[in-house]
């Protein structure tokens, strides 16, 4: 079995002097929906940023398709790997279709600004995210959930085999969170794309991930299928939370029920 398309070896990740991770190695299984979980400031977004070449490791290297990721031109890398950052700014007054069309940038050149493939990719991305009807609306007039779907559509229009999503469900209500995660699931199952997402909600992670990476203090504590690795001990070790694990009645995946400190006083 050859090595996975995206992996990092012996990474030391730091912002200036502040070291987040040391000697971190990670492999993203091809075709997986990998979810990175962990408490706040455990370095999960930092790892994602390093995999997405947004952060240069101070030691170690990230490989993409058998080559150092830094060896690719930035446009070539952008044709293989897409990123939905945690915060992006919609330029003032931009319309939905215009923003989504920007996802085609790595496929375009100065005098090759719009091809039939571009039209198709943008239409498909908008259809997949359900924003086709919004296409002539201004992005700054949309609700948070709609806006997030538009950003997702932009990354989809990029049509990369690997997609990295940094907290794609933050600021969304529960229905929109599920909607975005269902969409990710479809992309992974029916389009065969490799997805890597940082998520806050452990139960969402357990339900949707095919491969789970649990981090604490810049280190990977456990990784594997959620059903195989998530138990009371792991949750206590990673999050410092006492809990019970039951089977999710919908999917059979692990469902984390936090232990109630005031169980007696509230139930009486």
């Amino acid at each position: 079995m050859s090595e996975p398309r995206l992996h990092g070896n012996d990474l030391t990740l730091a912002y200036d002097e502040r070291v987040i991770s040391r000697g971190l190695s990670v492999s993203i299984p091809d075709g997986s929906f990998t979810v990175i979980v962990g408490p706040n400031a455990c370095g999960k977004s930092t790892l994602l940023r390093a995999l997405a070449r947004m952060l240069k490791p101070s030691a170690g290297a990230v490989h993409l398709d058998g080559q150092l990721i830094t060896r690719y031109s930035t446009k070539e890398a952008a044709r293989r790997l897409g990123l939905l950052p945690q915060s992006s700014v919609a330029p003032e007054g931009i319309t939905v279709a215009d923003l989504v069309s920007r996802g085609r940038y790595p496929h375009q050149r100065l005098f090759r600004q719009w091809s039939a493939a571009d039209t198709e990719a943008v239409a498909e991305a908008m259809a997949n995210t359900g924003v086709t009807d919004l296409r002539h609306r201004r992005v700054d007039e949309l609700s948070g959930g709609q806006r997030q779907r538009v950003w997702l559509a932009m990354v989809l229009a990029q049509q990369t085999p690997i997609l990295l999503l940094d907290e794609p469900t933050t600021f969304l209500d529960i229905a929109h969170q599920i909607e975005v995660l269902d969409l990710c699931h479809d992309l992974h199952v029916s389009h065969g794309r490799t997805l890597v997402a940082v998520l806050h909600d452990l139960n969402h992670a357990c339900r949707y991930a095919s491969h789970l990476i649990a981090m604490r203090d810049g280190e990977i504590v456990a990784q594997g299928a959620p059903g195989a690795i998530v138990d009371e001990t792991l949750v206590r070790e990673v999050f410092g939370l006492n809990c019970r694990i039951i089977d999710d009645p919908e999917t059979g995946t692990p469902l984390v029920i936090p232990a109630a400190r005031q169980a007696l006083s509230t139930s009486s």
Binding site: R53, P85, V89
Partner: peptide, 9 residues
């Protein structure tokens, strides 16, 4: 934003 732009190449 820089991250979005870098992501797009």
């Amino acid at each position: 934003g820089d991250d979005a732009a870098t992501g797009l190449g």
